[in-house]
C-alpha cells in the first residue's frame, strides 16, 4: 500500500513488480492522473493493468489511460471480477 502516487512510483522503482495497481485519483503529493501518466510513460510499467477507484463521474475524471475505472460506492463483485479478469485468474 502506497500513500500517494509519488510513494507508489518510489516503490516501483525499488523493483516491486505488481500484477495490477488499484488507485484513487484525489491523492496528496502526486494525484492519480499524474501517477497514471507517469506509469504509462515508462516502458517497464506500461503493461501493468491499472484500475481507478474514485468518487467522480466519467465526465469529471476525464480521459484516463487505464484498464478499469469505478465510481464510489462501488459494486464490489464487479470490481473483483474486473481485477480477476485483468490478472488472468
Amino acid at each position: 500500500m502506497a500513500e500517494n502516487g509519488a510513494a507508489a512510483i518510489t516503490v516501483l522503482e525499488g523493483g516491486f513488480d505488481p500484477d495490477l495497481i488499484l488507485t484513487d485519483l484525489m491523492m496528496p503529493v502526486m494525484s492519480g492522473w499524474d501517477f497514471c501518466k507517469t506509469l504509462k510513460g515508462r516502458a517497464a510499467w506500461r503493461s501493468i493493468p491499472v484500475v481507478v477507484l474514485c468518487g467522480m463521474t466519467p465526465d469529471q475524471r476525464g480521459k484516463l489511460q487505464v484498464e478499469g475505472a469505478f465510481e464510489k460506492p462501488t459494486h464490489l463483485p464487479t470490481l473483483f471480477g474486473r481485477i480477476a479478469e485483468l490478472c488472468g485468474v
Binding site: D17, D19, L20, A43, S47, I48, C87, G88, V89
Partner: peptide, 11 residues
C-alpha cells in the same frame, strides 16, 4: 517490461 503480462498468460 511485460512481467505482469507473462504471469497473466501463465494463469
Amino acid at each position: 517490461a511485460g512481467s505482469a503480462s507473462t504471469r497473466y498468460l501463465c494463469r
